[in-house]
Amino acid sequence: MNHWKITLSRLLKEGNKLLRLVNNEISRMFAKKKMFIFILILLTFTLTLSIGIKSVQLIGNLPPEEVPQMTGQDMPMALLAAGIDFLLPVFLIILISDMFTEEYKNGTLKLPLLHPVSRQKVFLSKILALTIFVLILIVFQMIIGYLVGTLFFEWGEGLNFINQVFEPTKGILLTIQSYGMSMLPILAFGMLVTLLSILINNSGAVVGSSIGIVFIFNIAGQLSDKISPYLINTHFKWFINLFQQGVSKTVIFSLTIILIYALVFLSASLWSFKRKDIVN
């Protein structure tokens, strides 16, 4: 019994230490104001999309059947479909290069490592903080989608997505599910970027090569149907499966690919981080 108590108290102590490290990461990132800039960009993106659609609706001179339809309930899904494979990966790349490469370059990566905390824990705290940042961005994008959408258009009678209409409760649930699902491939891609940011000591090179990988994967996916299913970016929009019938096999395949990317690159990143010589 005592043994369990000791183990539990040690676990709580270590968990507490990890949480304090995560708290450090989050407070630093907010102090740097990058997250606020990302939120501002998402807001601009939402407003631009809304203004564009509204303009077409008002002065587009299009026949009624071609006028784009939009409601407050549709806007978050429209944003997710339009921005998930471009904006969020770019934000993620910048965040990761900041947390690893920039800190290494500035000589601040070593600061926690000079104290009684393992490298594994420092690494894990950064990954957890990253997950929280992605969650914040995704939740913000969804909320701002509902707000701006309703402001520009009207709340509407339900969610209209891929030629299907869902009643409001079901629609909101599907929207939340879609946003939640889209976090997974983004974070799995983030693990790949993390490995690069540990191996490369120049943040410009990390951002450049990561964006380069997104482009190469996109082109490779378009050129070859055989390669495409194995590329992580192909699964950025796997939430689409929620809106299709009889696709459980596709969902499982996507999930497998996402998890393989996440686990392989997470392990490789941790391995590299634990062995990295900190000379800055």
Binding site: K17, R20, L21, N23, N24, S27, R28, H115, P116
Partner: peptide, 12 residues
């Protein structure tokens, strides 16, 4: 102060 707080947070 906040720099030192970052390090203080690591210690119990």
């Amino acid at each position: 102060y906040k720099n030192l707080k970052q390090i203080a947070n690591i210690h119990e």
